[in-house]
């Protein structure tokens, strides 16, 4: 009787171990592989833009395809942003010949202080004035400085909010410079653990009557209903506007964006597109 119990225990143990092996072999391990592959896919393509630079030339991201780009959203009134500028100038000098291009996008209200700063600090890379739409294409600029590190293949590999040391950018840029044009860097290691999530928006979201929400598939009736809902609801960000107004005046407000997207989801659940 005792022997039988021991045998049963051994058989049960073998079954459990086998089950664990099978689960790992066919479910857990593929999940890990998929996740690794997905990490590669999590580097979105940097949205293209065309802006007039301070020197009057057209600044288009597509002109720098094949180069490693640091896209820096900054402002002259932002102390931490000013701290980074000499570091970017240094990186441009050091790695420009190898294919690095720093681009500055100023969030100042007017070009005058930016132009003055540009000349005073003898900036050695192009700077253009931001538009709301450019910021939104890059997932909304919630704090300054916000910098994107873009590879030779046009993908965004890192996003940094707040001033970073030159070494952080240098480590990331060197990895990306080592790649061939159009080659995805599969083993990219961000210099800062837990770098920001990278999300970009589509022109359909950016050019929407409800900025940030793609309403292109809604019927006219649904769109009217969505606008009505968003115009009757107050934004929880504390701005004092309705969600609709907040989306229109402050495209960078994550609270109104979330509320608008939730309202859109609710609407499409109620009356599917």
């Amino acid at each position: 009787m005792k022997k039988k119990r021991v045998l049963l225990g051994v058989i049960l143990g073998i079954i459990v171990a086998g089950g664990l092996y099978v689960a790992n072999r066919f479910w857990i391990a593929p999940a890990a592989t998929t996740l690794s592959a997905q990490t590669d896919g999590a580097y979105p393509m940097a949205p293209n833009f065309k802006l007039a630079s301070l020197t009057g030339q057209t600044l288009s991201l597509s002109n720098f395809r094949g180069k490693v780009v640091i896209l820096d959203f900054w402002a002259t009134w932002c102390g931490p942003c000013r701290l980074e500028i000499p570091e970017f100038e240094d990186l441009q000098r050091k790695y420009g010949p190898q294919g690095l291009q720093v681009i500055g996008i100023s969030e100042d209200d007017s070009a005058a202080p930016v132009r003055q700063f540009y000349q005073q600090f003898k900036m050695n890379y192009p700077v253009a004035m931001a538009t709301d739409k450019v910021g939104m294409l890059y997932g909304g600029i919630f704090g300054l400085p916000t910098s994107f590190v873009i590879g030779r293949d046009g993908r965004i590999y890192a996003k940094h909010i707040g001033a970073m040391s030159e070494g952080v950018f240098e480590r990331e840029v060197r990895q990306l410079l080592a790649a061939r044009p159009n080659q995805m860097v599969t083993n990219f290691a961000p210099a800062v653990p837990g770098s920001e999530n990278i999300s970009v928006e589509t022109p359909a979201e950016v050019n929407s009557p409800v900025p940030g929400v793609d309403v292109s598939k809604l019927t006219p009736t649904q769109l009217t209903e969505l606008k009505k809902t968003l115009s009757s609801e107050h934004c929880a960000c504390g701005c004092g506007y309705t969600v609709m107004q907040c989306r229109q005046v402050d495209g960078g407000c994550a609270t109104s964006l979330k509320m608008a997207r939730e309202a859109m989801a609710k609407l499409t659940q109620k009356t599917p597109i």
Binding site: P47, K50, I198, T202
Partner: peptide
């Protein structure tokens, strides 16, 4: 000047291969 070139949905992070965990695992 404010031309925003098209960005297709394929540029967005894909959700297609995300594992669908269930149960204890």
């Amino acid at each position: 000047m404010r031309d925003l070139s098209p960005v297709t949905s394929s540029h967005r992070p894909t959700q297609r291969n995300r594992p669908k965990p269930g149960g204890v695992w």
